[in-house]
C-alpha cells in the first residue's frame, strides 16, 4: 500500500449538520460536527441515545433517514466530496471502500438468503472478481472471524445462527471488499456481555491486520477505552469534547463527558441497549432555533453566560478541544484529582 496518503486524512468532516423536516418545523439533530480520521485510526463517537451519533455518522455514506437534509463545509473521503457525489458513485463506495456494521445482528441479515449469498453478493456487486473468488474469500473471512465449518455455514440461513455468530457474519460481510473504513454502530450492544468482549477484540485484531480505519459509535466509555485512539463526544447533535481517547478518559474537560464517565456501565450490569440515564435531566428539544450550551439544563456548573451564543471551542492540550466556558477549570480540577490520588 502506498504511504503517500499519510499526510492527507482518510476522512475529513467539517461542520456537518443534519436537519430533519417535521410537520412542526425543523429539528436539528446534528450541528457543526467536525473531525478528521487518518488511515488505520479508530475514532469513537460517544453519546447517549438521542445525541445524534448514529444519524450524523450514517450520513457520511448517505444512509440518513429520507427526510433528513445533510449539509457540510467539507465531507471528503480520500479527497472525494461525499456530499455532491452522484448516487451511483456513492454506491461504489458503500460496502466497498466504506462498510457499515449495524447494531442488531438479529435483524441486519436477510432471513431468506443464505449466509454465503449475503457475503458473496457484495463482492460481486462491486465487480471485484468471479463468483468462485468471492466464495473463496467468503469462506476465508468466515474462518478469520472465528467460525468453524465455514463452508457449511455458507449454506445456512441467519436464523440457524446465534446472535454472536450472526454478528461475526456481519463483520465478515463488512470486510469482503477490503474497505478502508468501517463504520460500526454499537456493534456489541445487542449481544451477550460475554460475547461483547470477543467481538470487540476481533474487530480490533482485524483492523490491525487489514489496516482499516474504524468509526465506532457507542454509548459505552468502557468500549472506548478498550479500542479507540480518539474520541468525539456528542451531545444533542453537537460535539462537546474531542481528543485522544486516553487523555479524555483520564481528564475530561467537559461536564457532560465527566458525567458519562461516572456512569460507565459495569460489565455485570445487564443494561445493554438502555440509554444512560444517570446524568439527571433530559436532552432538550432540538426543534427550532437553538442557542447557547444545550447541556445547561443538566449542568451543575451552568451560569447565565452559558445561554449566550456561541459557546467557544476551547483548545485544551494537544489535539483536544472542549466546548464549555469552564473547560480549563474542569480540566485543571480533574488533573488535580488525579494527582491527589
Amino acid at each position: 500500500m502506498p504511504t503517500t496518503t499519510q499526510k492527507r486524512p482518510l476522512l475529513e468532516v467539517r461542520n456537518l449538520s443534519t436537519r430533519i423536516g417535521a410537520s412542526h418545523g425543523t429539528i436539528t439533530v446534528g450541528r457543526d460536527i467536525s473531525y478528521e480520521l487518518n488511515p488505520g485510526e479508530t475514532l469513537a463517537i460517544v453519546g447517549e441515545s438521542g445525541s445524534g451519533k448514529s444519524v450524523n455518522t450514517m450520513a457520511l455514506v448517505g444512509l440518513q433517514p429520507k427526510r433528513a437534509t445533510v449539509t457540510a463545509d467539507k465531507l471528503a473521503f480520500e479527497g472525494r466530496d461525499l456530499l455532491t457525489l452522484p448516487r451511483d458513485q456513492m454506491r461504489t463506495i458503500r460496502g466497498n471502500e466504506i462498510s457499515v456494521i449495524f447494531q442488531d445482528p438479529m435483524t441486519s441479515l436477510n432471513p431468506v438468503l443464505t449466509v454465503g449469498e449475503q457475503l458473496i453478493e457484495v463482492y460481486l456487486a462491486h465487480g471485484l472478481g468471479t463468483r468462485a473468488e468471492a466464495e473463496e474469500r467468503a469462506i476465508y473471512l468466515l474462518e478469520r472471524v472465528g467460525m468453524r465449518n465455514a463452508a457449511a455455514r455458507m449454506r445456512q440461513y441467519p436464523h440457524q445462527l446465534s446472535g454472536g455468530l450472526r454478528q461475526r457474519v456481519v463483520i465478515a460481510i463488512a470486510m469482503m471488499c477490503k474497505p478502508k473504513l468501517i463504520i460500526a454502530d454499537e456493534p456489541t450492544t445487542a449481544l451477550d456481555v460475554t460475547v461483547q468482549a470477543l467481538i470487540l477484540s476481533l474487530l480490533r485484531e482485524l483492523q490491525d491486520e487489514f489496516k482499516m480505519a474504524l468509526i465506532l459509535i457507542t454509548h459505552d466509555f468502557g468500549v472506548v477505552a478498550s479500542i479507540a485512539d480518539r474520541v468525539l463526544v456528542l451531545y444533542a447533535g453537537g460535539v462537546v469534547e474531542s481528543g485522544p481517547a486516553k487523555d479524555v478518559i483520564a481528564n475530561p474537560a467537559h461536564p457532560y463527558t465527566s458525567g458519562l464517565l461516572n456512569c460507565i456501565p459495569r460489565m455485570e450490569d445487564d443494561d445493554r441497549g438502555q440509554p444512560l440515564n444517570t446524568i439527571p435531566g433530559m436532552v432538550p428539544s432540538l426543534a427550532g432555533n437553538l442557542h447557547g450550551c444545550l447541556f445547561r439544563n443538566r449542568c451543575a456548573l451552568a451560569e447565565p453566560a452559558c445561554a449566550s451564543d456561541p459557546i467557544p471551542e476551547v483548545a485544551v492540550g494537544a489535539g483536544r478541544m472542549a466546548r464549555c466556558i469552564h473547560a480549563d477549570a474542569i480540566l485543571a480540577e480533574t488533573r488535580a484529582q488525579e494527582g491527589g490520588q
Partner: peptide, 12 residues
C-alpha cells in the same frame, strides 16, 4: 434493518 444493510452494501 436488513434492507438498510443491503443499501449499505452498495447494491443496486
Amino acid at each position: 434493518q436488513y434492507i438498510r444493510m443491503a443499501w449499505a452494501k452498495g447494491l443496486a
